[in-house]
Write a protein that binds this DNA or RNA. Structure first.
Lengths: 218, 218, 218, 218
DNA sequence: GATGAATGAGTCTTCATTCAT
DNA sequence: GATGAATGAAGACTCATTCAT
């Protein structure tokens, strides 16, 4: 069963038996997740019922429950997908590019500014996930794992900046956290009041200041 | 409907008579809000039922509904209180102190680090509020107002820093946003993984870096 | 207490002690009943809450309960008033007039047609009372008493018609019922679809037909 | 919402697939309606809770709500059924019979007198429906439609009576209303005080009088 | 693999009534 | 006489989940 497969993958146990997942099944799963993602973004997790998802997915109630054992499992799947997608993007810019540290940072800003529409629609979901995670151990664990990898990537960026002589010899861990905080904080505020300022301009301004310093030279 | 009664009382329209909100009434309201705040922090808004609040408040169900027309109204009241309290703290430090801009910033950090326990318990609620606000116009409006005042305070801080010759001649608005983003982002990450780092140390590090700059001087 | 007085009056027991009902009290009672009557007519008995009545009466909740022991007692009082008023009207026309039977009938029609607006607004209440009475013994008893008196008046009218040689020697009881049925039935239909026909025209037509007969003379 | 599901099914829109309302579904619906009808007749609409209906229907709460979106929808369904049944009976006698107009009228009386027990039990419901309809536009519209068809049938009866030379050349519309008023009025009074007289005897007497006239020939 | 009818615990809310002041 | 805060049983409705087919 796909269900077992999925659980196993998460827990990282599956080893022994091959599971055959048909393309139809994958497609159905994806349909459900897509429907749920859109609904969560639109109405929030709490106000999206399984019935809503059923209706939007085009499947029947039993069908949805065939692919996912519970509503929580759908949420978990969505957020896996959500964060994995983000990590992939990060990875491409940070690891697969031959830019200097500063340029990579600037690249990240442009990227954040790029798919604004996608971000606008998805940001509430991530807020919701943070909120959920603060009350739910399994979700929190997922999130912590994700942040750890996020931090790891940025830490490597900082180390590259130092190694290249571009940046000062700062504490890579703490600096990574600072950079992440700046990005997440900007997103948070902008998520709440998207019309109050222009996201990528603000981010560029912020990162520039972080690089140059705010204090008067003397 | 009690709602009308209640609204009337609040708005003070109820015929010609003076509306006196007795101390008893205030105390009952406060009891309910305190109970709700604790429960929201513990289990989240979605998993806290009116019955939970009723039980914890010591009143009866009807009693709770005498003071609040709905669960949503309780949420709204709590978040008003929540943010107003934060603004008050900000104001004390930023406006009522004779410190330089940099010192004020540092003061804010210590403050953030101070009542850690209170913050730990309340932070999930603010996450939740952000999430809620992203799907609910009235709440979002409240939040936007709050952020506007927040930004205003910090903007004045920046202008003071510039006027005093302490800081470079940066754009006060954008810089205020950057500082807020740094604080909120740090809180956000720390709210999700409180054991991963020490909040006020990290904030101090971050602010220091913002002030000094990350780039190598030449 | 007025309450006892009222109960006693209904049950017809009060004899021994004089009860002093102040004018203020009477006025308050009347205010409450007027408010309730209007609300019942507008929204129906089931959807009118004591709170509605309290608000509309201008008194406090405790005040309303000072004058009436329960919502049911308010209903009972209103319907007493309602039917007593109707009986009074009937009595004036049927007993205190020097007209022939046929003319009296015609007079009744005109009367029905007169205060149309009052009737329009009150008719739903009497429908509701019929409905209520069919499930509630005490109310039904009141209603039966009222109908008995109604029937009595009309019976006397029929007997007058026969005695005067105006009408055939029919069974007065059955004929009274027939006349009442005609009136009540017309009101019922008209109450449901007030715009479909003109009430007093229709009643005149109906009574004329009842008098003349529908059959072809041979 | 189940409501949407249900509506979809009723309207037959649910994607492309044919909507088949199975016999099982019909049976369940009928069970619910039967249970509700009995309860409404016994205790009235206002005092019958959904829980009562659930209990009496043998289904679970969710089951009842699967078939009906709300209590109001159950009421509406019952009254549709109720009035449609009455119209069918009328139609059989008035249209599908080869009797003269007078005989058809007499037939109606006998019919009214026949299923007395059923009527006794159902009459309160129709009273309640009238009361409800006077405060509720959709219900009123249903009722008006029903009355229109009722009136139409009786009008045709009157026209037949006239065409056959049995009855005088009266206004068919007004006369139809008069006949209906007589029937409904008799039912109304009898519904309130069923023991006070014998319904079909009284109706026979009333119709006879309507046919013969009450006035002395000269 | 899929369907959709059915389940039942749980939700928020209402409201007639009481009672200390 | 009158107030209005408080009570708590009862109400309509929701919704994640199950299961026979």
């Amino acid at each position: 069963m796909y269900y077992d497969d999925y659980t196993d993958r998460l827990v990282g146990l599956r080893k022994s038996k091959e599971i055959i997942v048909t393309d139809d099944a994958k497609r159905a799963r994806q349909q459900i997740l897509a429907a749920a993602l859109a609904l969560f973004a639109e109405k929030g997790f709490g106000k999206t019922s399984i019935n809503d998802i059923v209706r939007a997915s085009g499947l029947s109630k039993g069908g949805v429950y065939w692919h996912f054992a519970s509503k929580d499992e759908i949420v978990a799947a969505i957020f896996d997908q959500f964060f994995e997608a983000q990590l992939t993007v990060l990875k491409v810019i940070l690891m697969d590019t031959n830019l200097g540290a500063t340029d990579k940072l600037m690249q990240l800003i442009k990227l954040s500014g790029n798919d604004l529409e996608t971000m606008v629609s998805q940001f509430p979901s991530s807020l919701e996930f943070y909120a959920l995670a603060s009350h739910d151990k399994p979700l929190r664990d997922h999130l912590v794992q994700y942040f750890a990898m996020y931090q790891d990537y940025i830490e490597q960026l900082v180390m590259q900046g130092i190694a290249d002589g571009e940046w000062k010899k700062v504490d890579p861990k703490a600096t990574a956290l600072t950079i992440i905080a700046l990005f997440e904080g900007a997103l948070l505020i902008w998520g709440v009041m998207p019309t109050a300022f222009h996201l990528s301009d603000q981010l560029e301004n912020a990162i520039t200041m972080l690089l140059e310093g705010l204090k008067q030279p003397n």
